[in-house]
Structures are given as C-alpha cells and as structure tokens.
Amino acid sequence: MREAPLLEVKDLGVTLNTSRGPAQAVRGVSFALRRGETLGLVGESGCGKSVTALALMGLLPESAVISGSVRLDGAELVGLPDAAYCKLRGNRISMIFQEPMTALNPMHTIGHQVAEPLLRHTGVSAAQARQEAIALLDRVGLPDAAKRVDAYPHQFSGGQRQRITIAMALACQPDVLIADEPTTALDVTIQGQILDLIAGLVAEHGMSMILISHDLGVIAENVDRMMVMYGGTVVESGATDAVFTRMGHPYTQGLFRARPRLGARKGTRLKTIAGTVPELADLPAGCTFADRCAIVEARCRAALPAVVDVGGSHGVRCIRTDVSMAAGGVGA
C-alpha cells in the first residue's frame, strides 16, 4: 500500500502583478512528494521555479493570487493566515536561497541566526539553542564552529555562508526542504561539496526535498523524481531515470542538447534552443512552448495541452508525443 503523500500539490496557479498587469506565472502545477523523497525542478530562468517554491512557502507578495491546493500532511496551506504559516516555516518546511551573500542579516551573528528558529519553534533555552547552533554549524562543515559562532556573516566566504544558511534551514529538522538553486551563486569547485552536504543531511534526517536548478546535471545526480518547467507549466515529470532515458517533451530534449558537456571536443558548438522564453504577460494561449517548438502544429496553439502519461507515471504535456518520442526525438 502506498503511503499518503507528505506534500500534495494540486493544480497550483499563481497570478502575479507585473508592470504590464496581472500575469499567470504558474499554471496547473500538480505533484505529490512522499516522506524521504527528493524532487527536482528544472527549467530556464524565469520559468516560474522560484514562484512555485515561494507559493509553497506562503512567501509570495500579498498581491499574488494563488489558486489550487497545497496540502502538508493533509492540511491545506493555500489561504492559511500568515500567523499559522509562521509556525510551519522554518519548522516543518524550510527553504535555502540562491544568494548566500544576501540571505543572512549583516547585523546579527551567525550563531544568533542559526539559533533563532530553535528558539522560535522549540521550547529550548537560549543556552541550549546556542549549543545546538554550534553543533549544527559543525555538522554543516563550518571550520571552528565553536569559536566562530559569534562572528558576523561578512566574515565568511560565500560557500561558508551557504553552509550557515543550510544550518539555519535545517535547525528544526523540517519535513520538507526547498533548496532554490542553492549552488548557483557559488564557485564551481564548492558547488559539488554543498550539494553533497545537502543530500547527506536530507538522507540523514529522512527529509523530503525539492531541489530547484537550471542545471540538468545537478538534477540528474541528486533527485529521485523530476519536473521540467517551462512558461509556468510543468511540461514533463517522472522518475529522473525515466525522464532522462525517454525524454518526451521537445523542450526537455532541447534543454538536454543545450547542456554544456565535460569532455566535449573543442570547437563543438553548444546547441541552444532557438527563440527566447516568452514574457509572462504574453504567454501564448495554447502550449507555452509553441513559439520555439520544431514540430508545432496549429492545434498546439488551441489550448494548453493535457498531460499525457507515457508509461510509469512519466507525464508529458505535449499532444505530439508520438512524434517527439519516436526514435531520437525532434531535431531542434
């Protein structure tokens, strides 16, 4: 029998106020995340990954209109009053951000910032919280944690700061961790270390994780299941292996061809997907990828294509999977 999902998202939609009027930044996002499961969210810049994450955290601007349903352990989160949400954030759902340089408050010591969620959500004393903060900082691999607990963020490197924000996010051992491009701002040499650290901690505590990245390689190595986003919709989703072996959506295929490869012969041109990501305000009515798709047909533009199950809970939001998934996929 399958365990009830820890986090269940159904038909999530987000409408944001942009300079050009209200725009649907996220449409029809549905997924379920079981305890201990890891889910990747991949897509180009501006496709709505962060907006989705912030919607789950209840951190979108007040003006954002959220539709659909987000359930944590069966309890509905959409429309939850902020006071109630505050009790969950940092406690049951945590988030790590892209920019470790700006995610820490320059005015407070790192020890204070890591101990804060503990003081807030658990009944520990200040002294206990401090001890716990030191242990956490030590666990995330901050050298000399006990000595440096009273130092300020600017005294640390970017990689060290990301370790500190990880300690902060994991302080209360949340059920769900959302990591929004946790390594994008870091030096390549440190990226791997930080990802390993996150993966280790997630496994250690049996947490569920949503890992956001625009890097297919990062997704391939770190998550059980993945979703590919484009123009605010999930265009392909499934087990990571299945998606990589049987890419069904022309966009996923393009994304795969466009990734830089180690050991590629010098002079090999990096393939890119022709065209650009559509502006939110003028997303096409039908398939969001229609303007860049090599096998687009008139009916693609009629309505947002439904998700087609191509086997083994591998879903593709495309009406021409028969063509796109025929040997070798579509040339871009």
């Binding site: 954030r89 940092g90 988030m95 951000f97 995610a103 969620p117 807030r120 996010a169």
Partner: peptide, 11 residues
C-alpha cells in the same frame, strides 16, 4: 533576501 530568509525561518 535576508528578510525573505527570515520569513522562511518562520519569523
């Protein structure tokens, strides 16, 4: 962003 991070921590 540190305010967002603080909110994400439940403040």
């Amino acid at each position: 962003e540190f305010v967002l991070a603080a909110r994400a921590a439940g403040k």
